[in-house]
Design a protein around this nucleic acid. Structure first.
Lengths: 240, 240
DNA sequence: ACTCATATGTCTTATATATGACTTTGTAAC
DNA sequence: GTTACAAAGTCATATATAAGACATATGAGT
């Protein structure tokens, strides 16, 4: 009699592969060893490794390219746009957003911030406030909260030089890869401040997107609330 | 020299299997033949059939149950709720909606309706107007447009007896299975009529969900616009 | 009737092997 | 130099085989 394995072999292999990405042994953009090499190393068949890699490719943690190899996924502009940015022009065209940083401050996490980011109360956080443009017009006001411990030295960066694609920055500078995100959407009315930034009248309808981003290790690594003017754009969602 | 096949064998097999569901040879809930039987019939290996079935399972067209068999997916309440209904209470609990039909009319499709449903201009459509409840309170106003040709005799149904889960009705009565849907979300202000139905003041913010549902054959089979009161609920979206 | 063991049929996991397709690199020919 | 071709390395496809896990039916024994 043998205890039933908790997980099939290919899932154990998948978890082992993932651990190497989490602990930084393989970093974004790195090429993984070839399938037969991985199979030999883990003591399983190539088919088992393939199945593990296929599942990792499915959740966009690796990219497989026939003839070239398997690579740890990077946050490119395309990936950010297609996977993490769901606002699209009403004509169907995706406009990639520009952005202007309004403010950056650090401080102790509020009760709400520590709840959403799963931090101990009072942990230090960095708060960003920025305006994003679509087709040259102000369309989104974003408030971003980051656990300061994850992004060492963030507060000392020049806020004017922060890039448009923050996820890429997190990954390149601190090895924090956003693996997935959970979004909650509501309809709200623009307050005076948001309305001014967006060039709307106070009381205009805005779409509020509340997003928690999760790192490879499963922990929250960003809380972002975006208020969007949806008069010329809309949020798209594919349901299968 | 051989012409490269347009599609690998497992995709051809997948398409062949899908055709049998589209043409009604296999209907919702039916059990498919076992893998070795399918492999023999199509003249491919069991592994190839497995891969085709796995992809069908991935897009929720079949359900695989170890030890029992592979079944054509049905629109159960759970499936409708988890896959096609994205409004969740702010406390995280999913409330399954009740509904009250307000009106049902048939007529010639407007230009917009025929564009969205890909119908010839002037084709006959059925229009439904209903109110949906969450936790006993009016929360959603829905306007639904159906191509009359797909749902023969729909207009003659008793509108008071229409079920809550329309997708199940489409499937059971007309063999129309909703395979996927594309949603567009916007923030809007409640007009006087919607506000009255929802118990809101006019000018309150509502979330507008514009959904085209596609049948197995890839053609649109329903256009639905839902206006939702998101003061106590929100729309959830998982990003991978 | 009820229980239990067994048999059967199903999907699931795991391995091995062979072939094809794609990419890069090295090398020979020009 | 440049081109053309061959070779090697990679993932992708397809097959075959075996054993495990799960569900249900069957029948013996009580």
């Amino acid at each position: 009699m043998e205890m039933p394995r908790a997980q099939p072999l290919y899932r154990q292999t998948k978890a082992a592969l993932m651990r190497r990405m989490v602990d930084g042994r393989w970093r974004a953009g790195d090429m993984l060893p070839a399938e037969p090499a991985l199979a030999a190393e883990f003591g399983v068949s190539q088919g088992t490794v393939r199945r593990a890699l296929d599942e990792l490719a499915q959740i966009n943690l690796v990219v497989r390219r026939q003839g070239k190899g398997t690579f740890v996924a990077e946050h490119t502009r395309e990936r950010a746009l297609f996977h993490f940015f769901h606002l699209v022009g009403d004509d169907g065209k995706r406009a990639l957003p520009g952005s202007r940083m309004l403010s950056m401050k650090a401080g102790a996490a509020t009760r709400e911030e520590s709840r959403r980011l799963k931090l101990a109360a009072g942990t230090r956080v960095v708060r960003l406030h920025r305006l994003r443009m679509l087709d040259g017009r102000a369309a989104i006001v974003e408030r971003i909260v980051l656990p300061a411990s994850l992004y060492d030295g963030f507060e000392r960066l020049d806020r004017a030089s922060l890039p448009n694609e923050l996820y890429k920055l997190y990954q390149e500078r601190w090895g924090v890869t956003v693996a997935r995100a959970a979004e909650k959407l509501k309809s709200a009315l623009a307050g005076p401040e948001d309305a001014a930034h967006l060039g709307l009248r106070s009381g205009a309808p805005v779409l509020e997107i509340d997003r928690i981003a999760y790192a490879l290790d499963g922990n929250p690594c960003e809380w972002r609330v975006s208020r969007c003017d949806t008069s010329a754009h809309h949020y798209v969602s594919e349901v299968v």
